[in-house]
Amino acid sequence: MPAVTPERWTALPRVAEPGESSIDRPVERIVTAPSLLEGAGFPVRRPWPTREIGFREADPFLLLDHMGAVEYAPGEAKGAPWHPHRGFETVTYIIDGAFEHHDSQGGGGYISNGDTQWMTAGAGILHDEMPPENLVRTGGLFHGIQLWVNLPKKLKWTPPRYQSLESNHVTLVASERGDALLRIIAGDLGGYHGPGVTWTPVTVIHATLEPNAMLRIPWPKNYNALAYVLTGSGSVGPAGVLIHEGQGVLFGTGDALTITASASPEGPSHRLEILLLGGEPIREPIASYGPFVMNTHADIVQAFEDYQSGRMGTIPATNFKGDSANADESDRP
C-alpha cells in the first residue's frame, strides 16, 4: 500500500481523544457495496448511493466508488473515456497505481500512489480518466476511490477547477495511542487541517490501524459521518459492530467516532484501511441523471442539451489518438 505511509507513526503529532463526556456515534446502517463495471469496464464497489445509504443519508456526498484493488494483466487496464460532469465535484484518490486525466479546458495531469485530484465540475466539463500507457502495457496493481461531493444550488454554476493534492502534502497525524495513522486529505480533525480546499465543510480521511488498534476521534456534531473499509476488518461504534472490506457505515448522531481493528486484519497490508468521511449536509433537492447532479428536472434537461450541443465543452483535438483529419467531427460530443 504505497499511499503515503511513514515508517514511524510515533513521531507524528497526535490527535487527542475526545473526553469522557463525548457521545460516541452509534452505527445506524451497514451496507455491503454492490459491484458493477464503470467506464471501459473496470470493476468498482459502490456503497452509496444505495437503498441503505441514499442521497439523504450521504449528503453532502453523492457517490463513492471503490476501484480495485485489482492486479491487471498486460493490456488489461481500463479507464473512463471522455464523459461530462455538471453540478458537483469528483475526488479521485489513488492508493496504488496511477490515472492520467485530460479535460475539455486543455488541462490534464497524473495521479499516483497517495495523490488526490479534487475536480470541481461546477458549470460543466468533459474529461477522461485513463491508466497510463506503462500500466496498460505491463499490467500491475491498481487501487483507488472516487468520491462525488455535491455543490449547493448557488455553486452549481461555479467555473470548473482542479486541485492536485500530492501525497507529500497530505496532513499526517497519529492517534493519541500512536497505533493509527490518519491521512487528512481535506477538512479538519482535532485542530489539524488537510490540504484540500472545499466549497462546503467536508472532511476526508484515510486511516490505517494496526492490528487491535482502537481509534477514538472527535467528530463535529453538525456533520454526518460515514466510513468505508478499503481492506481489512474490525468493528465500529460503541457497540463494536463488525465490519470488513467493501462495507460502508452510516453513523448516527454524536461528537466522537470509534473504530477498532481486528487482531489480524486480512488484506495485503495486514492492517485495517478505512475511509472516514463527513460534512455539513446541504439539504437541497437533488435531481440526478448519469454524470449530472442538479436541483430540478429542468436543470438536468439543460445539462443534457448543453452537453449534446457542445456548450459544455469539446474534446481537445490534441488528445485525439486516431486520424487527425477526423478531429473536427470527432470533437463534437
Binding site: 471501459a40 481500463k78 473515456p81 489518438k321 486516431g322 470527432s330 460530443p333
Partner: peptide, 25 residues
C-alpha cells in the same frame, strides 16, 4: 467502449411521429 473511445454524434434514423423534436447523445 474501450480506452480510446470518445463520444460522437448519434444518428437518429427515424421518429414517429415524423419530424418529432428529440436529441440524443
Amino acid at each position: 467502449v474501450d480506452n480510446q473511445w470518445r463520444p460522437g454524434p448519434v444518428t437518429i434514423l427515424s421518429t414517429t411521429p415524423e419530424g418529432a423534436d428529440v436529441i440524443a447523445a
